[in-house]
Structure formats: structure tokens, C-alpha cells
């Protein structure tokens, strides 16, 4: 299942920042990691990822550098900056609140992960 573009617009940057918090990564690696670690929900097309990375870089949340290994392909690696780290903390906090609110409304599943309140009797 793919997430709607508008939702992805809010979730994409924080997801990328979160991945980069753990390690320096290049574009294709990010695409793969997003798809795998979100169970395909946050699978991001290249058309979305690269402009997103450039925007994060323009805002100073990530930094990039070209790396050419002794053997292997030349790639551009992205890493989280201090500013990006602060932004990630803020975004995480907001997402947690949002999730709590959604949970309280019965839109997101409870602690057990079971979905609630479709209104249809079991």
C-alpha cells in the first residue's frame, strides 16, 4: 500500500532524517532502506527522493560529499548535520503527539496494534 502524496510530503523528510541519523547513506541505499524498513509503506520513488534530499541540504539539515572508494562506484553520501538532528527531534516529538491524538480518536491501533472502531460489529 502506498501512502498518499500529501501524507508522504510530511512523513518523507522525517523518515529520511531518521535513516541518516543512524548512518551516512547514498541515494539508492536510502530508497532501499525506506522500502524495506517501512514494509513498503514509505517506498519513495527516485523522483521524490532526490529533490527531497536537495531541499534538506538547502535547509542545512543534511550535508553531502562525493566519495570514490578504491574499488567501486563514485557516490554522493548524505549525513545528518547538527541542525538536522535538532529538526529530527522536533519532528519526532510532533509525530508522537500526532500518533497519540490519532490513537485517542481510534484512527490508529491501540497498544496491542489492533485496529479500532471501524463501526462494524465483529
Amino acid at each position: 500500500m502506498r501512502v498518499e502524496r500529501e501524507l508522504m510530503r510530511g512523513a518523507g523528510p522525517v523518515a529520511v532524517l531518521k535513516l541518516l541519523e543512524q548512518a551516512e547513506m547514498y541515494g539508492y541505499e536510502l530508497v532501499q532502506a525506506l522500502a524495506e524498513r517501512s514494509g513498503g509503506i514509505l517506498a519513495m520513488g527516485q523522483s521524490t527522493l532526490y529533490p527531497l534530499l536537495y531541499n534538506l541540504e538547502a535547509k542545512g539539515f543534511v550535508a553531502s560529499r562525493w566519495v570514490t572508494p578504491a574499488t567501486g562506484r563514485r557516490r554522493k553520501y548524505y549525513t545528518l548535520t547538527d541542525r538536522g538532528r535538532r529538526r529530527l527531534a522536533e519532528d519526532t516529538e510532533q509525530w508522537c503527539r500526532l500518533t497519540s491524538a490519532m490513537t485517542a480518536l481510534g484512527i490508529v491501533g491501540d497498544a496491542t496494534g489492533a485496529p479500532r472502531g471501524t463501526g462494524v460489529p465483529a
Binding site: 547514498y26 541515494g27 541505499e29 527516485q46 532526490y50 562525493w66 554522493k76
Partner: peptide, 10 residues
């Protein structure tokens, strides 16, 4: 360069 690296990885 970056997109080429992406396609090459793919």
C-alpha cells in the same frame, strides 16, 4: 553524476 550512480546501483 548522482542519478547515474543511482541507475548503476539499480
Amino acid at each position: 553524476d548522482e542519478l547515474a550512480a543511482h541507475f548503476a546501483d539499480g
